[in-house]
């Protein structure tokens, strides 16, 4: 009886389908919980979904490496999805063009400081160079951040976890500050979400509206491009 179940389990886990099904299910259940809680701005849907997914993997006794190998098929779609962000970017082009100067002035210091604050704090608290390298690209969108982390000698799972937490904290902070300071300008909120909170911030920005979403896409890609050029250079200068 037991060996029969084990046989079925093995048969199913040999394909990437269980990993894909689990990810989709966690995403939808996470979204449902998020809506049920009244879409709280302090906690994006992806946090619920990621925790559910982790719990499901532990309960089912699926090894993370096995899961990751199967779910890699899903992550392949990240490429076309990034290209798709060109559409809202194009649609908001006139509004972006009107303010390209302030955007370009704000971006380099913002992207540099996003990395510097985190690396500086971790360094003060005695983190190893490996951990510092994993934290540096924490505001960079996943496909670019993976390349940067490899170049700096960081640990990819730690970096990806950092991305999740950064995205969640960014969403929460922007929500809080916007309410405190009574900010409504979708251009400002979107750009801040995209520069600091990469994909997770951008998803939040699209919830605020298409303008915020486009400015977030722009902020996210500019931060990615800038960090990909800046971080390896800075690392070499500091001599880590």
């Amino acid at each position: 009886m037991n060996s029969g179940w084990d046989g079925l389990r093995e048969q199913l886990l040999a394909t990437p389908m269980p990993a894909i099904a689990l990810t989709l299910a966690a995403f939808f259940v996470g979204g449902w919980v998020f809506t049920r809680l009244g879409k709280p701005s302090w906690c994006p849907a992806i946090l619920f979904a990621a925790m559910l997914l982790a719990a499901a993997l532990v309960l089912l006794g699926i090894d993370y490496a096995d899961y990751r190998a199967g779910a890699g098929w899903l992550m392949l779609l990240l490429g076309p999805a990034t290209v798709a962000l060109g559409v809202p970017l194009y649609q908001q082009l006139p509004r972006i063009r009107a303010v390209w100067k302030p955007l370009l002035i704000s971006l380099p210091p913002a992207a540099m400081l996003a990395a510097l604050y985190a690396v500086g704090l971790a360094w003060l608290l005695g983190a190893s160079p490996e951990v510092l390298a994993s934290l540096a690209p924490k505001s960079v969108t996943a496909p670019i951040a993976i390349g940067i982390t490899e170049q700096l000698g960081g640990v990819i799972p730690l970096m990806m976890g950092g991305l999740l937490i950064t995205g969640v904290v960014t969403t929460a902070c922007v929500g809080l500050l916007a309410r405190r300071l009574r900010l409504r300008d979708p251009r400002v909120l979107g750009f801040v979400l995209g520069v600091n909170g990469h994909v997770i911030g951008t998803v939040r920005a699209f919830e605020l509206g298409p303008t915020a979403g486009a400015f977030a896409s722009l902020g996210m890609s500019l931060t990615g491009i800038f960090s990909a050029l800046f971080l390896p250079l800075a690392w070499r200068l500091v001599g880590l």
Binding site: A26, F27, A50, L53, R68, G72, L74, M75, M160, G161
Partner: peptide, 13 residues
Amino acid sequence: LAMLIMPGVVGIF
């Protein structure tokens, strides 16, 4: 978009 990075980010746990 958020779902597509989930397989990577759950690694933290």
